[in-house]
């Protein structure tokens, strides 16, 4: 997963690789990644920092683990202009993210959603939100609860009232 990422705990601040500037990102659990600025600026948040000249030291990526950050960097690499030859190939590669087969996939998607939200990466957000929507559409409320592991905190009376209020939506 993390082939694109090089972990180097001793580096800090910006370095350069050829003429390309490298940014240092540090995950919540302390993993450090060096990423080309041209790639990392797919994140609107990081782009803002670069534009404001605030990306000169290690950038902490709060609430995102090293494992998730590696996946995000992989996403960036694939979405870099010229990284894949055509749109079809990219869509095929993206398809690994847009289906949720089990709860471990689901948790990965949550982690990616949190990361995509924090770093503001519109393409990744779109992909992950549609993956979750695809997984729950057509499910009953109980099936959705099961899928999400949500425990209802309504009392019987509240749920009954709510169902009555929204009943119109289900009538033919």
């Amino acid at each position: 997963m993390s082939t694109a990422a090089t972990a180097d705990a001793s580096s800090s601040g910006d370095t350069t690789e050829g003429s390309v500037r490298l940014l240092t990102l540090q995950s919540e659990d302390g993993e450090v990644f060096e990423v080309k600025e041209t790639i990392a600026t797919q994140s609107v948040t990081i782009k803002g920092m670069v534009d404001d000249d605030c990306a000169t030291s290690t950038i902490p990526v709060c609430n995102v683990t090293g494992r998730t950050l590696a996946m995000v960097i992989e996403w960036w690499n694939k979405h870099e202009i010229g990284a894949v030859s055509n749109e079809k190939e990219l869509k095929e590669w993206e398809s690994q993210f847009d289906t949720i087969d089990d709860k471990s996939d689901r948790d990965d998607v949550y982690d990616l959603l949190m990361a995509a939200n924090y770093l503001n990466i519109p393409t990744l957000l779109d992909c992950c939100t549609s993956a979750v929507a695809e997984a729950i559409k057509g499910k009953s409320t109980d099936e959705m609860r099961e899928f999400f592991d949500i425990k209802s905190d309504f009392d019987e009376k509240e749920e009954d009232a709510l169902r009555k209020e929204n009943q119109w939506a289900f009538e033919n």
Binding site: I136, K137, G138, K139, S140, T141, M144, R145, F148, I150, K151, S152, D153, F154, E159, L162, R163, N166, A169, F170
Partner: peptide, 11 residues
Amino acid sequence: KSAVKTSFLST
């Protein structure tokens, strides 16, 4: 309909 069903999940 799926969207309205999400309202029954929790508060």
